[in-house]
Amino acid sequence: SSQSQGISSSSTSTMPNSSQSSHSSSGTLSSLETVSTQELYSIPEDQEPEDQEPEEPTPAPWARLWALQDGFANLECVNDNYWFGRDKSCEYCFDEPLLKRTDKYRTYSKKHFRIFREVGPKNSYIAYIEDHSGNGTFVNTELVGKGKRRPLNNNSEIALSLSRNKVFVFFDLTVDDQSVYPKALRDEYIMSKTLGSGACGEVKLAFERKTCKKVAIKIISKRKFAIGSAREADPALNVETEIEILKKLNHPCIIKIKNFFDAEDYYIVLELMEGGELFDKVVGNKRLKEATCKLYFYQMLLAVQYLHENGIIHRDLKPENVLLSSQEEDCLIKITDFGHSKILGETSLMRTLCGTPTYLAPEVLVSVGTAGYNRAVDCWSLGVILFICLSGYPPFSEHRTQVSLKDQITSGKYNFIPEVWAEVSEKALDLVKKLLVVDPKARFTTEEALRHPWLQDEDMKRKFQDLLSEENESTALPQVLAQPSTSRKRPREGEAEGAETTKRPAVCAAVL
């Protein structure tokens, strides 16, 4: 046999249950609850290399294929790409003598399909299967379609040439079993990697079954959420508030809700932002270029202005709740996480202390139980975000031990490091100062900020419009641009040419 590394010779191994799959997660993409704000000051410096380099560890398999027929071997997927077919160049070659004697062998292509993985959001991997055969590759009886790919989820059954000719079961060793999710959700989405997690739940990458488009699904544990919100009269209202707010909003710089499922837990389906959180971008770069800050901040102002015009105060604006559309420097941003939002009543007064301390406005800290506050709290938070983006460190921090965090904020005395700000323009610093004003009545509004000289930049605004146009074009394009080929190089076993392929839609398939 010419099988590559990772293939075992026996096809009769006992199949494990899916609970053996491991679970991976990374930083929070968007969480309903406010958790302790991640610290920006503690960015690790590059460490000196050791005298002796450690040995390379043996790579762990990321997936496993269990053979369902004699003549096929099990495969431990270690590499990122595997070709399957009769050709000797394939990493998994159909060359077992037992297999060659079967009637089905002649229906398999020289290069029938490939399984591979690509880097997705949060640097996690996504597994795909890609059909290159004349007679078809099927996943859970659905045709992939020649020249098309679809994501592979845990426990997928792979069939060759005929939908009933099941050859492998695919085990993704990095994700959960699909069966743990409600059927209504599974009918519409293929669940994938964990993108982030918080005290009350997690955010998962998923794929729409009909279109193969990526989405983010925010899962909120009702049990954990009820415990964490025990002081509230009705904890469920917080989730329902977020859903109702998101459904009503329609702005290019605000995250869109696509679906909602109320089962044992809450499942909020949101558009996916491939670039992750602004927080991670700031930490990764230490600070952002001023031109990049301007492009992002302009969009934040437009989003918050839209919220305020619609009578909504976000109340928890922070870099973790600003998501980026891509890994590119120039990209769209979207505001997310409306769990603490407040729809303005007639009095415009709110007395609930919520939000993240580092970003809270002075009037929030001094008015607990005594007075109210209004939309100006969001403008203060925007000032803190702009400060961080321009400088790479927070204006107020618990680690300045000589003054408490509350006193720093209520006095408006931010930590100004001259040598850092020497590289920032006077106009940018002036806008920061106009937003970090203790008196909410004297603080800049979103309208005033948008009129500030720093943002009178036609090149930046043109760039934003171009990015918007690109997004609109990409969302308007159909996901499947061509029909699967019906040509046949070899006959199917026991049926006429093209008899099955043309009847089945290529579900969740995307043209390369």
Rank of each mutant, 00 (worst) to 15 (best):
A371R: 02
G383R: 01
L324S: 08
L429P: 07
H314D: 04
D316Y: 05
C508H: 12
N285P: 05
N259K: 08
S397C: 15
Q408N: 15
P478S: 09
V420I: 13
F279H: 06
G311V: 09
Y359G: 02
S367W: 15
E328R: 06
L360S: 07
G345N: 14
C389Y: 03
K463V: 09
C331D: 02
E493G: 08
H399E: 00
G498Y: 13
H308V: 03
Y359S: 05
A303Q: 01
A482F: 07
N321C: 00
H251C: 14
A361T: 02
A303R: 02
V438L: 04
T352Q: 00
W454G: 06
C354A: 05
C354P: 02
F338M: 05
E426A: 03
C508V: 09
D265H: 14
G498S: 07
T352V: 04
Y298S: 06
N259P: 05
L270G: 02
T347W: 15
S326T: 13
S367H: 15
Q299V: 01
G498T: 07
F261V: 05
K286R: 07
W454C: 02
Y266W: 06
M273K: 15
L246W: 03
I333R: 01
R462L: 13
L405R: 04
Q465V: 01
G276Y: 05
G494V: 04
E309W: 15
R462D: 13
W380T: 04
A303D: 02
L435P: 10
R462G: 07
V511S: 12
Y373W: 15
S325V: 08
V269E: 11
K413C: 01
R400S: 08
W421E: 00
V438D: 00
E309N: 04
E363G: 01
A303L: 01
T292Y: 12
C389W: 03
L429M: 10
I312K: 00
I409P: 00
V432E: 01
R375S: 12
G383D: 02
K256Q: 09
S487N: 13
A371H: 12
L323F: 06
K334D: 08
R287K: 08
N250E: 07
K433F: 15
N415K: 14
C253V: 04
G369R: 07
E470F: 11
V366Q: 12
K489M: 07
E329C: 06
V322P: 01
K289F: 11
F396C: 00
A263H: 04
Q327Y: 11
K256T: 07
S411N: 09
Q456L: 15
A291L: 13
K441F: 15
S341L: 03
L405N: 12
H251Q: 13
F416A: 07
L467E: 00
I313L: 01
F279S: 05
A509L: 14
T292H: 13
